[in-house]
Amino acid sequence: MNPLGKSDLQVSPVSFGCMSLGENAAQYKDLLRKAAEAGINYFDTADLYQKGLNELYVGETLKPIRKDVIIATKAGNQWRPDGTGWDWNPSKEYILKCAEQSLRRLKTDYIDLYQLHGGTIDDPIDETIEAFELLKQQGKIRWYGISSIRPNVIREYVKRSNIVSVMMQYSVLDHRPEEEVLDLLHQHGISVVCRGAVAQGLLLGKSAANYLQFTDGEVTRAAKTLAKIADESGLSKLEAALGYVWAHPAVATAALGIRTSAQLDDAILALRNATPLSDIQRTVLRKAVRSFHYEAHR
Rank of each mutant, 00 (worst) to 15 (best):
residue 191 S to N: 07
residue 192 V to G: 02
residue 193 V to P: 05
residue 194 C to P: 02
residue 195 R to H: 05
residue 195 R to S: 05
residue 195 R to I: 09
residue 196 G to I: 04
residue 197 A to T: 06
residue 197 A to D: 09
residue 197 A to I: 08
residue 198 V to L: 06
residue 198 V to Y: 01
residue 199 A to L: 02
residue 201 G to N: 10
residue 202 L to T: 03
residue 202 L to M: 02
residue 202 L to G: 03
residue 203 L to M: 02
residue 204 L to Y: 01
residue 204 L to E: 01
residue 205 G to L: 01
residue 206 K to S: 12
residue 207 S to H: 14
residue 207 S to R: 14
residue 207 S to I: 13
residue 207 S to F: 13
residue 208 A to Q: 10
residue 208 A to C: 09
residue 209 A to D: 12
residue 209 A to G: 11
residue 210 N to W: 13
residue 211 Y to K: 09
residue 211 Y to S: 06
residue 211 Y to A: 06
residue 212 L to W: 12
residue 213 Q to R: 15
residue 214 F to N: 10
residue 216 D to Q: 15
residue 216 D to P: 15
residue 218 E to I: 05
residue 218 E to S: 03
residue 219 V to P: 07
residue 219 V to Q: 04
residue 220 T to P: 12
residue 220 T to L: 13
residue 220 T to S: 13
residue 221 R to S: 14
residue 221 R to H: 14
residue 222 A to C: 08
residue 222 A to L: 05
residue 225 T to N: 10
residue 226 L to F: 02
residue 226 L to S: 04
residue 226 L to T: 03
residue 227 A to W: 05
residue 227 A to Y: 07
residue 228 K to L: 14
residue 228 K to R: 15
residue 230 A to C: 08
residue 230 A to N: 09
residue 230 A to F: 08
residue 231 D to R: 13
residue 232 E to Y: 10
residue 232 E to V: 09
residue 232 E to G: 10
residue 233 S to M: 11
residue 234 G to A: 01
residue 235 L to H: 04
residue 235 L to T: 03
residue 236 S to K: 06
residue 237 K to W: 12
residue 237 K to F: 10
residue 239 E to M: 01
residue 239 E to I: 01
residue 240 A to D: 04
residue 241 A to T: 00
residue 241 A to W: 00
residue 241 A to G: 01
residue 241 A to K: 00
residue 242 L to N: 00
residue 243 G to V: 03
residue 244 Y to K: 05
residue 244 Y to D: 08
residue 244 Y to F: 13
residue 245 V to K: 01
residue 245 V to S: 02
residue 246 W to G: 00
residue 247 A to P: 08
residue 247 A to F: 09
residue 247 A to Q: 10
residue 249 P to Q: 08
residue 250 A to Y: 03
residue 251 V to Q: 07
residue 251 V to L: 06
residue 252 A to N: 08
residue 252 A to Q: 08
residue 253 T to S: 02
residue 253 T to E: 00
residue 256 L to F: 07
residue 257 G to L: 04
residue 257 G to K: 02
residue 258 I to Y: 10
residue 258 I to F: 09
residue 259 R to S: 15
residue 259 R to W: 12
residue 260 T to V: 03
residue 260 T to N: 04
residue 260 T to G: 02
residue 260 T to H: 04
residue 260 T to S: 08
residue 260 T to C: 03
residue 260 T to E: 06
residue 261 S to I: 14
residue 262 A to T: 13
residue 262 A to Y: 13
residue 264 L to H: 04
residue 264 L to D: 02
residue 265 D to I: 07
residue 265 D to H: 11
residue 266 D to H: 11
residue 266 D to T: 09
residue 267 A to V: 00
residue 268 I to H: 05
residue 269 L to N: 15
residue 269 L to V: 15
residue 269 L to R: 15
residue 270 A to N: 07
residue 271 L to Q: 11
residue 272 R to D: 12
residue 274 A to L: 05
residue 274 A to C: 10
residue 275 T to M: 13
residue 275 T to C: 12
residue 277 L to C: 09
residue 278 S to T: 14
